[in-house]
Design a protein around this nucleic acid. Structure first.
Lengths: 113, 113
DNA sequence: CAAGAATGATACGGTCCCGTAACAATCATC
DNA sequence: GATGATTGTTACGGGACCGTATCATTCTTG
């Protein structure tokens, strides 16, 4: 529960982290993709396409396509739900966890300056 | 100079702000565009295409195109440099300042939770 | 003033994401 | 078991961004 950042601190932090991501040229995730990834890793499972679409306020094809592209990158994986085979369960991966760990380090370090 | 955020705090903050931007469906700036905008508003002028390209580690056409699209949105404006008419000076606008002010509020508020 | 360097813009072909509308598979209900 | 609802996926046309190469304009240097 940190104290709220001041306006100047908030913008500087946002700038610094964004700049680090641009220069890395490896975090080529779109805003929506990044949000999906973080939601899956931070909130409790299960995560279905429908739930994610509702949470983000976007259409289902947006989620499907994001899962396609992030699945290729192995940042997330899909599995059919055996209880209800209409559902798809979105699951975490080792690569995804490492990716977010690295992101957290970047944010954490830059928030100190 | 706030204390560095913990890993969990950093990711939660990043998630919350990203989620707010996705749901707003108005912050449709790419990562590079956002970084350019913040650089122009946070760092001291003058800002030329060449300087911005070097700072972000991208090619000049990337900057030119970003200035085109953000110029249409009136988040930034361009002016020729009278001292050296090869240069283009990137300048702030009222709309851009309001946009970032709103962004800072979002970040600041979410960093409190 | 002529030749070269520097700056920003443009052209081209390609890739990715978008929104909408249809679709196949699975479940629920009667 | 047939009908309708639900879930996720695919199809299609369109728009935005990318990287590279090339260009016009302006300055610098001999």
């Amino acid at each position: 529960m940190p104290p709220g950042l001041t306006t100047a601190q908030a913008l500087k932090l946002w700038h610094d982290v964004n700049l680090a991501m641009v220069r890395d040229a490896e975090s080529d995730l779109s805003l929506r993709q990044m949000t999906i990834l973080l939601t899956v890793y931070l909130e409790a499972p299960p995560h279905t396409v429908r739930d994610l679409a509702a949470k983000l306020g976007v259409s289902k094809p947006v989620i499907t396509r994001a899962l396609d592209s992030m699945g290729k990158l192995e940042l997330l994986s899909r599995r059919r739900d055996d209880k209800d085979r209409r559902n798809v369960l979105v699951q975490r991966t080792v690569k995804g966890a490492l990716y977010l760990e690295r992101l957290a380090d970047t944010i954490g370090n830059l928030s100190k300056t």
